[in-house]
Design a protein around this nucleic acid. Structure first.
Lengths: 185, 185
DNA sequence: ATCAGCATGTAAGGCGTTACATGATTCA
DNA sequence: TGAATCATGTAACGCCTTACATGCTGAT
């Protein structure tokens, strides 16, 4: 099957925008795409070696004094590889929400717990949403290049789906508390 | 850290509703919770053994003729374990959308590809949404027990977030095609 | 001085998927 | 009679996370 390793594509995608160190890459992931993709050092550094071996990226030692610093740069080869992946006719989209699992099985506990779990979820989403919204507004005011449009659109996806989540949280809490038959959606 | 294995909880949750075989469990997962959680045979069968070892479930051989059939039943112990997990103050919620990754990095390809990828996503969501809606309506007409309410609410989550996705798809396609500066949200 | 942040990496483990292996039964 | 579905399981592999290990630099 030999599916591509997605962390490699994340790295190529980021390097296609600017040269970065492994540490920078982690920061970019955390600040820009963490709501739909993650990365860790234990993931990123081996991937960088692999990508360099395949000559999709080049490294240059930019150490200052005793502090090591390896900056990576994407090659033509890497750009092609990235493009091929983006153009593939398939994408794996996974959502794994433990909160929904707990709600689905909530009869195993009690209504108070069910509502409380929704509230925990709601709090988390509210926090993430406020960050995403700021991010989204910044990008919106700076729509001068093609990549900024794409960055904006992904952030917008987050904002709009999170807003839908919050509306659902209200409904769900009300319905559980109402404790009665449900009417109308 | 010893986090609980979630597939174990999925199994306990399903068995808390009715007795099932491993094969049945896979079917229930596929038909009812697959939009936010998955399971595979290579996952389920070892988990069943583990759960039985921990006396959270009991097995009874229900083989008919030469066809093997092992039915599992949850124990009091298992019910307690399930309840404890549901009541834990934390839940891991992960979204990993390769489609968003490809969009974020779409400058690495071209606008046509970006739009095409959104269309692929849209088709997938539309198909899943129509199934979820049917499911949701069936549950809505049958809200007689507490668990049905929870089943309904999780399905509703799917319906409402997928509807938000589709609205976003429209916007995103238009914006990319417009190719101009963005105005208003 | 000390702590946060910069910076690179390895090791172990967890959890999951896919593919493989096997065989019975039911229905067209 | 052949395909789909029922049914159970193992093996290999993939990918990611967490924890560990190390050391420099800049700000307070």
């Amino acid at each position: 099957m030999a599916r591509v390793k997605r962390i490699n594509m994340v790295i190529l995608g980021l390097l296609n925008h600017e040269d970065l160190t492994g540490y920078d890459i982690k920061k970019r992931i955390d600040s820009s795409i963490s709501f739909f993709w993650n990365g860790s050092f234990g993931n990123i550094y081996p991937a960088l070696k692999e990508l360099e071996n395949d000559s999709f990226i080049l490294s240059s030692n930019d150490s200052v004094g005793g502090r090591e610093r390896i900056v990576y740069h994407i090659t033509q080869n890497g750009k092609m590889h990235l493009k091929e992946w983006i153009s593939e006719q398939q994408a794996v989209n996974e959502l794994r929400y433990e909160t929904l699992l707990k709600l689905f099985f909530a009869k195993g506990a009690d209504k108070k717990t069910a509502v409380h779990n929704i509230e925990l979820f709601e709090d988390r989403i509210k926090k993430d949403l406020s960050i995403l919204k700021m991010h989204c507004n910044t990008l919106k005011d700076n729509l001068n290049s093609e990549d900024h449009m794409y960055f904006y659109l992904t952030a917008l996806f987050g904002v709009e789906s999170y807003e839908a989540y919050l509306k659902w949280c209200d409904k769900a809490k009300k319905m559980i508390n109402a404790n009665d038959q449900f009417k109308g959606r």
